[in-house]
Design a protein around this nucleic acid. Structure first.
Lengths: 143, 143
DNA sequence: TTAATTCCTATCGTATCGATAGGCAATAAA
DNA sequence: TTTATTGCCTATCGATACGATAGGAATTAA
């Protein structure tokens, strides 16, 4: 499962992508439009700021803005950022990963072999979609 | 992420599938071969028994055995059994599902649209592999 | 009877998760 | 310069889920 935090992050970034190039968007607007708890969202946006995805402006007309062009931010990247990995099990990450506890040697684990395939398919989908894609269901699905 | 419990369940079932038709397999054998905490495994196998996947025999030469033929048990089914769903977000399940908290109406949620596609691809892979498949990585991958 | 084995329920410690509190810092407008 | 507005940071909280174990009852073959 994706954490609630990851989902909020993606939806907030989608909102900022829709306003890309229009200056900063106040927190309250995102909160109202996306139905996300305000305080929690500040934590999430600060984190995204530290990762370089979002810039912020304080004060009277403050708010947040997406830094990269929406076409440059893949949903897969956002999930990796928030969750660390796209894989369903620790040992099935393509990045340097922890071993699963109480498992067999990775080379012998049938479950791992399967989960690697799931990971690759998932990554293929999530890395083909960016924040610029409005209706994500309609994006071309070409391997 | 798959829970540890789900992973143990799959690996235990794979082990029983390998011994299919050879009578019951004692817990200790599964524990030794699969490196799973014994007490925890009894809980898992009891649950799988209640779901009709496993039968058990008590007493001196007791143990567990898979009930359906290994070819009839899809990994996707096992995961649905243990975790309730294959989807990465609650609202992206194809079965009757809960709504996500603090979200938009489902029809408007771009994230949901994407996650439905991920779910379908994942299900396609996991439902094409059964407990009978030895090296899961080599199963044909034909849409 | 005895040893081996599974079954059931309760419980435990920990980690994570979602969320909020509360105060500090910055900024623009009055 | 004052003030209202807005974001920033750290700590913390309550709830829940998770992984695992304890302890004993029930079953069965030797």
């Amino acid at each position: 499962m994706l954490s609630q935090k990851s989902r909020y992050a993606i939806r907030a970034l989608q909102h900022l992508a829709d306003r890309y190039g229009q200056g900063v968007v106040p927190l309250a607007e995102i909160v109202a439009a996306q139905n996300i708890p305000a305080k929690f969202l500040t934590v999430i946006l600060s984190e995204l700021g530290r990762e370089g995805l979002v810039r912020s402006q304080r004060g009277r007309v403050g708010g947040y803005a997406l830094i990269p062009a929406p076409t440059e931010v893949r949903i897969g990247d956002v999930i990796r950022l928030m969750r660390g990995s796209i894989a369903l099990v620790p040992c099935a990450s393509r990045d340097p990963h922890e071993h699963c506890e109480h498992c067999l040697p990775e080379a012998e684990c049938r479950l791992r072999a399967l989960m690697l395939r799931v990971r690759d398919e998932t990554a293929r989908i999530l890395d083909a979609v960016t924040l610029a894609d409005g209706n994500l269901a309609l994006v071309a699905d070409k391997p």
